[in-house]
Design a protein around this nucleic acid. Sequence first.
DNA 1: TTATCTTTGTGAACGATTTCACAAGCCGGG
DNA 2: CCCGGCTTGTGAAATCGTTCACAAAGATAA
Lengths: 221, 221
Amino acid sequence: MEAPRAGALARRISETTVRRLSLYLRILDEVERADTDTISSEELAERAATTAAQVRKDLSLFGSFGKRGLGYSVLQLAAELREILGLDRSWRVALVGAGRLGSALFEYPGFRRRGFEIVAVLDADPEKLGTRWGEVPVQDIGRLEEVLRGERVDIVILVVPAEAVLDVSARVVAAGVKGILNFAPMQLRVPPDVAVKDVNMAMELEALSFALSQTSRAPTG
Amino acid sequence: MEAPRAGALARRISETTVRRLSLYLRILDEVERADTDTISSEELAERAATTAAQVRKDLSLFGSFGKRGLGYSVLQLAAELREILGLDRSWRVALVGAGRLGSALFEYPGFRRRGFEIVAVLDADPEKLGTRWGEVPVQDIGRLEEVLRGERVDIVILVVPAEAVLDVSARVVAAGVKGILNFAPMQLRVPPDVAVKDVNMAMELEALSFALSQTSRAPTG
DNA sequence: TTATCTTTGTGAACGATTTCACAAGCCGGG
DNA sequence: CCCGGCTTGTGAAATCGTTCACAAAGATAA
């Protein structure tokens, strides 16, 4: 009855696999329709723009969630994926940097929907201190360590100017935070037990630029 | 003297390689100091959190840019990378969706610095029409095709609500745009000659969540 | 119950990417 | 000019990720 979870977790799961799991979950959420409550690897693959074998391999890394001849229960697989991704709990998030991008991220509904709760906002600008974003007061970045510890923050979203990143990230790490989502276009150096994800919009545009240049230089042949 | 560029361009360059090239360029820009004007694959690797062999392999896909015993000229390699990435020209970009995130992206200095010029802003909200963002007027999304063609737009940054994505992306493609940077948490389906990059912040947070869950479940061993 | 149909889970084959290891080439010093 | 030290560029080997292909097993119908 139980999946061989413990053994499976031993192997390292690749970045790309995690992205796909995340995508599968989003698709299951979209698909949560009444007409069928199961989905085949084939259909999931179709919607995720991958192959059925890939879907099954990805899932098999964590256990056996399907029924042969039938497919996967949409609700049950979604629950499994939430557990695998660590989304079966809520995460306490601090937003460091209350600029325009920070404000857009604060409003972003996708975070709360997945259990990411922004419990603190910090900034260096004296004019912003004391103002409130919804229920959350904007606090002085000088009190960073105190706030991160006091609010038991799990994850920091870093939206500070490039020149502040080095200093702020070091303080975040020192305060014991183990996860950082970095929007600054600068490579963070952190200890190996801290997970960092970079979101670099300029880099994505450059990848587009590369792709467009390629096709124009080497026409379809 | 000339690198074997033409031959090299024939092979398909992987996504991850392009990301690294982009990163190397950013590092070279940061490193543009006076004390040395060369950099070794070792030092570049160190800063990019990869290996020297990887750096050399990546670059060798496009030519021979270094000098044995010396390393790479910082300025010259940066110029080569700009050319490889298609950044030796300016790209005309339209921002579709003038919400909070769109506004943050519009302000983002990293785009212009790399030659991405936002030449048009479009939105569906009648209240926003006619207002100006800097020099750029916010125009009605109803006139999308007209604006994209009139402004000779190369790349569209899509920042519209999930329910609008399908329709808008189809119109963008129909208008002949070959590159889309998509911020909506939804998979676009486009013809193979259109390049799409997805920026999905929720997905990045979920990858963090996964990483944090992993380490707590399977302690360092 | 049995036959047939469907779809999973998974070794094995394949393909792609990364790392290794070293010959070739450049620099500086004597 | 030649030598020793350094660093590139690149085949070969190793590793990692994807696809194939099929046995196993549940579903359905008669």
